[in-house]
Design a protein around this nucleic acid. Structure first.
Lengths: 306, 306
DNA sequence: TACTATACTTGAATTTCGTTCATATAGGAT
DNA sequence: ATCCTATATGAACGAAATTCAAGTATAGTA
């Protein structure tokens, strides 16, 4: 009667608040979910949520299904992982590298959770690679690299984790804070603060400033996100960062954020891995855990299609 | 990945011990289960049970799936019942009557379980109806009658509960106990003990003795199953009873049992209910509970198709 | 008041997936 | 051997879930 698919859908509906986003989460169309829920409702012969309410509101039957989902889905997940361990061996190596420091925010909880479930997998994490991590990945010194610009390379594949918006962080008193969104021209008189990496690996340049042929007045670098935000808050410059890395500062009313252009610039974050580890059970589970953890902890992110 | 369907199948496989019977339990063909399991196995990429072993033997992965099933399926069941209560109202009336006293064996636990879940439903049970219960059911004095011979009647429908074999119980020292099965002719010199009901409502007569035009030497009646067994054990007669009513006496080595004819005589037990209560949520749940309880407590019974 | 955007619903078309049917294979018993 | 029972397999079918293409509804905006 009730199927796991229904539980996943309802949970996604609660987590996202809308059919459109829920559909994206479960990799279906919004129409499919509409049919699916309608079908379930008439099989249970009662409605599950009140339509046309902004903060989506579940009926008591809907809530009952949700508590069921919260009980059952983790159990299924755990069993699948246990079986994966039984089937695919418990050990492996997972040396990771990240290019962007803000990734710690979701990577740390991910690693913690993963280590609990795969105690035998040897893990290591190196950040701020002075050298380019991709060749090291290909050579087998690294096993996974978090990156937002996939570069075609033999033996390497990219597993999408999630998509996010790149937003401008600026002082609340900054004149540009009065605009609803930032245009390329707005940068000509600004100091842009960014991570110390090659500029053609930064979306602000490749997808925003370069196409408009605009150059900021000055570019300066900072290694750590916190440092950047100090500079920004004190009006020493502006920066383009993942929206999820900024929410905590916005919540504390420390800085203001604005989208790049009217529609905003969206990127997706990938895990680069070697083809030969692609089907390893521990690797598959790491990726799933990373996605789960991110969706749980980060706001404003979306599913990334392959 | 794993679906509820898989959990149900695996649990049925464990409970019945063979694909053929498991298939019957979940109302599918044996072929379907074979495909289904094979499919799951390659998706999990590990086998779930060792084939060609008499007492079916699960791998550790298979056992993991089974523990998952044992955790999850009852939760689903409970949630569905909760929602049924929310949707269909919590109250109702359920006056029951049974014709055969041995039914207490599965009916009592069923009633106990049901009462826990539907405290608001008013229940009553009358046994040994002196009058015919079916008209009382039609009139609305009764709501459910347990019977093994459905008689077409307006406004009444029959919900199959389970099928069982009618077997001959006889003293272990009885000469007929040496035979592997009993033929109609074997009755000509025997005393047959049966419940005090019309003889054309008893399968021994309608489906076994009458077609062969055989009459037992003597027919005597007893109200209670225990009484019958005392008579049988002391060699005062033989009787034809549901196999599940006899297992406890066989286990205690109190009597012997033999099938009627080589293939055995199978009957199915029905719940007769009024059409107007057929779709009541509490009624549906009662029937499901009865089936579940029977399969759990009774041995040698099988699913009954409508 | 009309316009535009957003969110959901609906029916029909379509694809996918599970099931059945018919048949093959393998053990175990006689 | 052979029969019998249990499981496996491939092809064909059918039902069910999903997508596609429109349609309705509501809120925000000019």
């Amino acid at each position: 009667m009730i199927e796991l698919r229904h539980l996943k859908t309802l949970a996604a509906l609660r987590d996202t608040g809308s059919l459109v986003e829920a559909a994206e989460r479960v990799f279906l169309t919004q129409s499919a979910l509409s049919h699916q829920i309608k079908d379930l409702e008439e099989r249970l012969n009662c409605s599950l949520f009140i339509r046309k309410t902004k903060p989506i509101c579940f009926t008591s039957a809907g809530q009952r299904v949700l508590t069921l989902a919260d009980e059952v889905l983790p159990m299924i997940r755990n069993a699948e992982r246990d079986i994966a361990r039984l089937a695919g061996g418990e050990t492996g190596r997972l040396n990771m590298a990240i290019e962007c420091h803000s990734c710690f925010q979701w990577l740390m909880p991910t690693i913690d959770l993963f280590r609990e479930n795969w105690p035998e997998v040897e893990m290591d994490l190196s950040s701020g690679f002075s050298f380019s991590p991709l060749p090291a990945l290909a050579r087998g010194e690294l096993d996974l690299v978090i990156t937002s610009d996939p570069q075609e390379m033999n033996g390497i594949c990219y597993e999408p984790l999630f998509s996010y918006e790149v937003q401008v962080a600026l002082s609340k008193k900054h004149p540009l804070a009065r605009k609803s969104h930032i245009e390329p021209e707005d940068f000509v008189e600004e100091t842009l603060i960014c991570y110390p990496v090659d500029r053609n690996r930064l979306d602000v340049f490749t997808r925003f400033l370069d196409p408009a042929d605009i150059e900021p007045k000055e570019v300066r670098t900072a290694e750590l996100t916190v440092m950047m935000l100090q500079l920004i808050a004190s009006g020493r410059g502006i920066s383009a960062l993942p929206s999820w890395a900024l929410t905590e500062y916005v919540d504390r009313d420390y800085v203001a954020v604005r989208p790049l252009s009217a529609k905003g610039i969206w990127t997706t974050l990938y895990a680069a891995i070697r083809d030969d580890q692609r089907d390893a059970e521990f690797m598959r589970d790491f990726l799933t855990t990373a996605r789960e953890t991110s969706f749980r902890n980060l706001s404003g992110i979306r599913t990334a299609a392959k």
